[in-house]
Design a binder for these strands. Structure first.
Lengths: 349, 349
DNA sequence: GAACATCATTGAATCGTTTATATGCTTGAT
DNA sequence: ATCAAGCATATAAACGATTCAATGATGTTC
């Protein structure tokens, strides 16, 4: 592969001149510029970014580290981050941890070795920051995305999960539902805990007791939605409504509904996080807490780059992004008066 | 950030020794090894992979370039590639072209500058190889994945699309369906064309005429499935069955079914590529041509690395991976004899 | 005990850039 | 004609590692 030296020789100029032509660092006469450019073309020369990075001590590479690229929530985030990164002259790469902290550790170490300028991280762990500590100390910029880890000195872009859940559950209550079950995400993750909190707050506001038996701990995966969905519908005392804490689990719930021939909202109301089921052949359309995923990615990348370039120097802060509640048919009040149904249920229990 | 020099100073050895300890290049006495290791720990030292890459002229970085990370088919491929890459000591990064050839061009150029050792590519274009030519000439290993571009000198790992489509349509015919519509993928892409070919071959084998009006050109996206699905079902003369060329379009078709209250297989049979709808709340389960996506990614990464390391030197070749047909309920013969139904339909038109 | 082989350790060149500094050429003022 | 200023270009020293060749210490053999 041709180097800058060969280009310089062929154009009969110094390598400094070649560099200046490429980077536009300083004026070069039209004649030399011309000669350099033809030489570059003829040699199929591509500047060695590795060498450049070594010298200037920055790579203009960013990395996004995700727990599960299979979850459709993340690709949108990637797009957002990728677009801003590209616009601002950075290159974004993506890596998967598979929700395994060990893998995350190895990946972060590798990224540090490759001297990426910054990392966008949705950590697999909600608690362990040992591997991030050294990385931050070493000067790699870090922005947490979607999830943060308590105690870490890094910016974060998070959804206002409490608010999203609270408004959604509030809406369900307002529609007349009283006995509302929740299928939570993993409670090891902040996201999972916050959404549960929003649910609890909404119930308390309305003086509805939070019943332990109505809280089903899932893990944000399809199967846990399916299992809990099935379990709920097979109980003798069904709730009026279910609030599901992410889109993937909702697909599982809908599958359970399908199998059990449950109709929504006639038999039970349903609301969910993430607008995944829009593409799904399910009727009716679901009331949903929508996350602005693209914007979250874009925003996080923006902050990361601002940090790298020194436009932000203040202490790390957390940006909370607002979710949007889209009300659709799935939370319409059930045909029977709520009070009656509710009483019946308590009587039976 | 600490360098090898600082480590050497602190351990009071030469930098060569530090390097030898880190890489295990040659024997170093236990005492020195110990000293070096503590120095590394104390300084929170992480070897500069950039500098190493410059010297040894390889980065141990691989890149996967994809048209649309939002399509659930790709994340699985990434996983496969990522796992083998990691096992063999490489790091895999991912980049998105958004199906735009211009973006693909920029990304490939950037990857070349970063001197990645190899690229796994599912090209956005089925025809344009101008940007790949120079890259291959420059010595970047390239393996095409899922799609290849005619005329390119690169290995490829592709699904045996013709066979997958043929076997599936053959199965539908055997189940008694005669009038089978196809919703194709983009015919600009090889994948799209090959699947159509498989469909045609199966029909010809069975002496069923290929009717132009039964071939609906989609683009592998949700919306085209929805539109064509709706269109098919609103025709006065409906086919017996639909064969859909990918999973995302199938979700669109199912959505159309849902809206029009179509039952499957009672009203119409359905078969598809990609096992996406398994997670979907659709009854019945769909007959599907399953692609071994994980294995395709793994296989492609394996070939790429073998090329890079010189284990393969023969001319580029194309590996065709076999799909699996999973027969489920959606292609059961309709309740009414096919001939009758077919006649009724024609009578009406 | 001398000569030599063996082995751990080190010095220094190198990878392909960027960039500060030096150099040399024009040009205009005196 | 001389000199300073201004500009284009070139020279050479980094950046942080790897690795060949050289050095020196130790052990073996006769």
């Amino acid at each position: 592969m041709a180097t800058i030296i060969e280009v310089a020789k062929r154009a009969d100029v110094s390598i400094a001149t070649v560099s200046n032509v490429i980077r536009g660092t300083r004026r070069v006469s039209p004649q030399l510029t011309e000669r350099v450019q033809t030489a570059i073309r003829e040699l199929n020369y591509s500047p060695n970014e590795i060498a450049r990075s070594l010298k200037v001590r920055q790579t203009r590479m960013l990395a996004m580290v995700l727990p599960d690229i299979t979850n459709p929530f993340f690709p949108e985030i990637i797009r957002g981050a990728e677009d801003t990164a590209f616009e601002r002259g950075y290159f974004l790469m993506t890596a998967n941890t598979d929700e395994q902290i060990g893998r995350e550790r190895r990946i972060v170490a590798a990224l540090r070795s490759y001297r990426v300028d910054g990392v966008l991280l949705a950590s697999a762990s909600g608690t362990d920051i040992s591997h991030l500590k050294g990385t931050i100390d070493a000067g790699v910029a870090l922005v947490c995305l979607d999830r943060t880890v308590p105690g870490i000195r890094a910016d974060a872009v998070l959804l206002d999960n409490v608010r999203g859940a609270r408004e959604c559950v509030r809406h369900m209550i307002q529609k007349g539902h009283r006995s509302i079950a929740i299928i939570t995400g993993s409670l090891d993750l902040q996201t999972g805990r916050e959404r549960l909190r929003g649910y609890e707050e909404a119930l308390r506001e309305a003086d509805i007791p939070v019943e332990r038996s109505r809280i089903l701990e899932g893990d944000f995966r399809h199967d846990s939605g399916y299992r809990h969905g099935k379990h709920i519908m097979e109980q003798s005392v069904r709730p009026d409504a279910i609030f599901v804490c992410n889109g993937v689990m909702t697909l599982g719930v809908l599958k359970a509904f399908e199998e059990l021939n449950i109709r929504c909202p006639e038999d039970i109301a349903l609301a969910t996080f993430d607008d995944l089921a829009v593409d799904s052949p399910f009727h009716p359309q679901l009331t949903t807490v929508v996350q602005p995923s693209y914007e979250m990615g874009a925003r996080a990348a923006g902050i990361l780059i601002d940090r790298i370039e020194g436009h932000i120097t203040k202490a790390p802060s957390i940006v909370r992004v607002a979710p949007t509640l889209i009300v659709r048919e799935s939370t319409e009040a059930p045909p029977h008066p709520v009070a009656k149904r509710s009483r019946r249920a308590s009587a039976r229990s």
